[in-house]
Amino acid sequence: MNFAAPRFSLRFVPVWRRNFLVWKKLALPSILGNLADPMLYMLGLGYGLGRLLPDVAGVPYLTFLAAGTVCYSTMNSATFETLYSGFSRMHVQKTWEAILNTPLNLDDLLMGEWVWAASKSLLSGVAILLVIWLLQLQENWLLTLWIVPVAFLIGLAFSGLGLVMTALSPSYDFFMYYFTLAITPMVLLCGVFYPTSQLPLLLQDISSVLPLTHAIDIVRPLVLGHIPPAWAWHALVLLAYGAGGFWLALALTRRRLLK
């Protein structure tokens, strides 16, 4: 496989603009679809289950859950975009093939897809942030503004990983494996719904290497009003997942398309 380092150029921008133009046409259903699911979880569980619970990590359960939901929603959006929409463009509509006949090379194309999916997922994270502001769940409004760039970083991490799956996938059905074996376990093990300290030690160890844990370790303190401990480390891990995923996806897609 060709693991040559990605060559960066600004030619990725037209790919981003192409996807943005499509998104604009379908913006309303897309926003609703992205927002409705995580928001229902958050409000349903936050109010319903929250009533039965004492404070979790020192705050009402809804507040605790809201911070996790920002990350979960961002992850979901980045994953769906790179898996299903990305696969459509690569395999079904052959949009990527059309683009590769222009001056863009595969590095530009995947860079455009990567940054686009992160941008779209940023919107999903920010939508939950708006709900947090609306319900006044945050401790320090100014501090929560940091969630905006962090959501983009979370988007990059999960878009990078998603592009790897897309590069490997023979069909849409393949993505079920990724959801069952990676996304769903992360949703349940990484501290969206409860502190990871509740888990048995082995599961805590597993959880500590998963990207969603690192995302939540940054976002939750920001919602609760303090600077996240070791934030630079968590950000670095997210960046490593994103960049590593992107690089691997590039090598895999070269093998798939440029043969």
Binding site: R18, L26, Q93, K94, E97, A98, N101
Partner: peptide
């Protein structure tokens, strides 16, 4: 190209 790969959303 041999196969049409126009953008169907556009």
């Amino acid at each position: 190209p041999q196969m049409d790969n126009l953008d169907p959303d556009f």
